[in-house]
Design a protein around this nucleic acid. Sequence first.
DNA 1: ACCCGATAGTTTAGGCTTCAAAGATTGGGC
DNA 2: GCCCAATCTTTGAAGCCTAAACTATCGGGT
Lengths: 167, 167
Amino acid sequence: MPAAVDAETALAGAPPGHKDDLRLWLRLLTCATLIEGEIRTRLRRDFDTTLPRFDLLAALDRAPAGLTLGDVSRRMMVSNGNVTGLATRLEAEGLVERRARPGDRRAQMLRLTAKGKREFARQSAAHEGWVAELLGGLDGADRAALFRLLGQAKGSVRAALSPEETP
Amino acid sequence: MPAAVDAETALAGAPPGHKDDLRLWLRLLTCATLIEGEIRTRLRRDFDTTLPRFDLLAALDRAPAGLTLGDVSRRMMVSNGNVTGLATRLEAEGLVERRARPGDRRAQMLRLTAKGKREFARQSAAHEGWVAELLGGLDGADRAALFRLLGQAKGSVRAALSPEETP
DNA sequence: ACCCGATAGTTTAGGCTTCAAAGATTGGGC
DNA sequence: GCCCAATCTTTGAAGCCTAAACTATCGGGT
């Protein structure tokens, strides 16, 4: 009898799709990690910045009227305490500015400064090129199919999550 | 003339597929972030542990003879300094043990302890169930197609990376 | 007018992560 | 036998990230 099994046998009776789902998730994670890591490296190398900073600038760039810290937190899917620190650092660099929101002394609006707009425009153009370079090996049909299927996956995950955590 | 454009117009002349690649990447990232976040939350809630810890145990579980810190670093795609800290914490918890590698005093083998094996078996079973739950909304055909297309994407990224960084 | 639950943001403690520099060891060329 | 480049790991500084506790404010019900 073979000896070098273990975590395998323990799950022998699991429903059929389970192992496939696991493999799918690992492959998805590998793809995301590879791309994300490369983008991080290039952001540091070419712009001396980080992915979270870039993401925050991107969120603000899409909202010319500005966003509250809470808005940013929700869009970036990170904690609000995290945004506090990011905003503080970006403000110190002169890329974003906090300003009071009239009529609500709890909230603050976050906006790109002129410098922030210029800087993000440069970074954004490069970023788009990188992604196109990394995914350039996919032909149009594969790209479209992958986009659609990832939409399905996203829907599946959200459906499994929403009952409890989206009250 | 409209005024509220900016990062859009700056890229008007970009090749056709660029914007689609960007959307594809963002969707891929969203999927990965959603799933990963949920797994992190549940690992903390049910086992009071973290995803990096779990990943390290998983790597060791697949290698009964043990791995050097460097092996782990490569498999997890993280820096070696990172693994040092993770291994130290897991060793303090008694889940992992360092032992000298005979014939090379630079390297150390990392192995699961008996407690580590037990603990990982529990976590692993739950983890597999979670993933199946989150991706359960996909039917078999979609799952297979997605798996294949992610393989294509992975190949595309690796091809774009390898010239410089895989010497 | 007052209270109280909900909302916005900050702080704190702990862990994760990277890069870069430094320490230890190895193996091969001379 | 000696040196030197390569390999393995650790350390230190800085930043990212979360959960949980805390402060401040808002707004509605009474």
